Amino acid sequence: MQSEQERKPYTDELGKLCEDSSYSAQAYFEAAKSAEFWDKIIVFVPSLVAAVAALLVAVGEPRAWAALGAVSGAVAATASFVGTGKRAASYKETGRRFTKLRHDAALELSLVLKRSGDSELERKVRSLRKEYAEIVSSSDLVSNRLFKRAAKRVKAGVLSSD
Rank of each mutant, 00 (worst) to 15 (best):
S21T: 08
S21W: 01
S21H: 02
S22K: 10
S24H: 11
A25I: 09
Q26F: 07
A27V: 03
A27R: 00
A31E: 05
A32L: 12
S34W: 15
A35D: 08
F37T: 07
F37P: 01
W38C: 06
D39P: 01
K40S: 07
K40Q: 14
F44G: 08
V45H: 00
P46R: 09
P46G: 07
P46H: 07
S47P: 04
L48V: 10
L48K: 06
L48Y: 10
A50P: 00
A50N: 00
A53Q: 02
L56H: 05
L56Y: 08
V57F: 02
G60M: 09
E61Q: 15
A64E: 11
A64R: 11
W65Q: 06
L68A: 13
G69F: 00
V71G: 01
S72H: 00
G73R: 00
G73D: 01
A77I: 03
T78R: 09
A79S: 13
A79C: 11
S80P: 01
T84S: 14
T84L: 13
G85P: 09
A89V: 04
A89P: 04
S90T: 09
S90E: 15
S90H: 15
K92G: 03
E93Y: 07
T99M: 08
T99D: 12
R102G: 03
H103W: 12
H103I: 05
A106D: 11
A106S: 13
L109A: 12
L109F: 05
L109W: 05
L109I: 05
S110G: 15
L111N: 11
V112W: 01
L113N: 11
K114F: 09
K114G: 12
G117W: 02
G117R: 08
L121I: 10
E122Q: 14
L128C: 11
L128R: 02
R129E: 13
K130W: 03
Y132T: 01
A133K: 14
E134Y: 02
I135R: 00
V136M: 13
V136W: 06
S137F: 11
S138Q: 14
S139E: 06
S139Y: 04
L141Y: 07
V142N: 05
L146M: 05
K148F: 13
K148E: 12
A150D: 03
A150E: 03
